[in-house]
Design a protein around this nucleic acid. Sequence first.
DNA 1: TCTGGGGTCCTAGGACCC
DNA 2: TCTGGGGTCCTAGGACCC
Length: 433
Amino acid sequence: MRERYIEQVFEYGGVMSVPGATILHADLDAFYASVEQLLDPALRGRPVAVGGGPNGGVVLAASYEAKAYGVQGGMPGWRAARLCPELVFVRGHFREYQRLGDAVMDVLADVTPEVERISIDEAFLDVSGATHLFGPPAAIGARIREQVRAEVGLPISVGAARTKHLAKIASQVAKPDGLVVVAPGHERVFLDPLPVGLIWGVGPVNEQRLADLGIRTIGELARTPSSAVEHVLGLAVGHKLSAMAHDEDPRRVVTTRHARSVGAQSALSRRAPDRDDVRAVLAHLADRVSRRLRAKGRAGRTVTVAVRLAGMQRSTRSRTLSVPVAATLTLTEVSEQLAWSAIEAAAPCEITLLGISVSQLADQRSVQLELDLEPPDPWRPGSAPGAARSAVDASMDAIRTRFGGDAVGYLPVVLRGDGAVPDEFRELAEHDL
DNA sequence: TCTGGGGTCCTAGGACCC
DNA sequence: TCTGGGGTCCTAGGACCC
C-alpha cells in the first residue's frame, strides 16, 4: 500500500494530525478492469481490456497492466490488440459494476452523509463534520481505502485537500492505489510542477492551445495574466482555468443534483439513411428517453437530435416546443423531423450514429396535458390526441414494471432486436433525474 | 482497422421585445 | 432618409468529463 503525504515531502512528519484538508476525492482504480480481475483470479496481473475486441468496438476500460502498453479507454479494440498482443478482452459484467460501485458508495456513506457521487466509481466527500469521529482527513482517507479493499476487494485512490479541484488532482496523483493529502499552506508547492492537463476542464485541445503560449505546468499557468489565457481559451474557460491555477475553487460538495438533460444514442454500422431504418432507431431511442422521463415524473421542452456522419463529423438539430414532452410517440415524431433536417443538409451521406436528447426539463406533474396544449401543428400531422398517447405510455410503463422491459414495445422497437451495447452498460452511465 | 454511451457547460449569431 | 441599447430566448457547434 502506498501512502504519500505532501506535507511529509515538503515539511512536517506529523501529518495525521493536520486538519483542514477536509474535501476528499475517492476514485476507484481502473474500475471495470479491476472488477474483472476480482471476479476471475486468472486475470490478475495480466493486461485486461473490457469491451472492444480485435475485430471491432472500443475498449471501455484497461487494467494497469494493459495501460503500461499504452492501451486506454475509448481506443478501438484492434488498436489495443496491436499495442498489446497478450491483451485479454473480456465482455464485461455490467451488473457487477453497478453492484460493487454501489457497495463502495455505502462505505463512503458510513463516513459522512456529505457524499457527492459524480459517476459509477467516483465521489467527493466533505469530511469536516466527521473528523471528531474518525480523526483528521488523512486518517479518514486511509480508513476508506482499507475498508473498500477489505469489504469490496477493490483498489481505490483518495486525494484530500481544501478544495474539490485540488482533492481531485491529488487523487489522480495518488493513482494507482494511493493516498495523497495536500495540507493547507502547501497548495502552491504541490500544484506548480504539475502538468496543466490535470486541471479539470483541460483536454487535448486546450492543452495544445496553452502549449502554444509556452504554458505546460500549472505554475506557468498561474504566472500568466488571466487576460492572455482568456484571449486564447475564451472568457469563461480562461477565467475558470486561471482561478483553478490560483487554487481558487468555490465549489461545495453537493449531495443532490438534478439532471439538466436526458439522452440516448446508438452507433450504427455505416449506412445510407433509410426512412424505415431511421424511424426504427429513433423510436427505440425515444422509447428509452421518454420512459426514463416518465419514471421520474419529468418532461422536457427542447428536443435535440444528433447525427454522426461517416468521417465522425456530427450535426445536430434542435427544436424547443411550447410545452414539455414525455410521450414516446411525440418524441419519436419530432426527432424524425429533426434527423431528416440534418441528414438532408448533408446529403448525399452515410450515417454512423443517431442520438436524441431532451433538455429544459420540468416536473411533468405541474405541466399536465402536454399534448392537448400544443396548437395544431405541422410537426404531428394526423397525430393522436395527447390523452390517448399518455394513456398508451402509462399502460406500457405499467406492463414493463411488472413483466420486464422487453415485455411490450412499439413495433419498430420490437423488430429491432440487435442492440450493440447491452442495456446494463447504458444504465451504468445514466445520471439520476 | 475504423472509432461507445451517458452527461455538463460555453459561444456566437439571430430573432424578438421593450 | 434613416433608425439606440439592453435583455432574453433559441439554435448549432464545440470542448470536456467519466
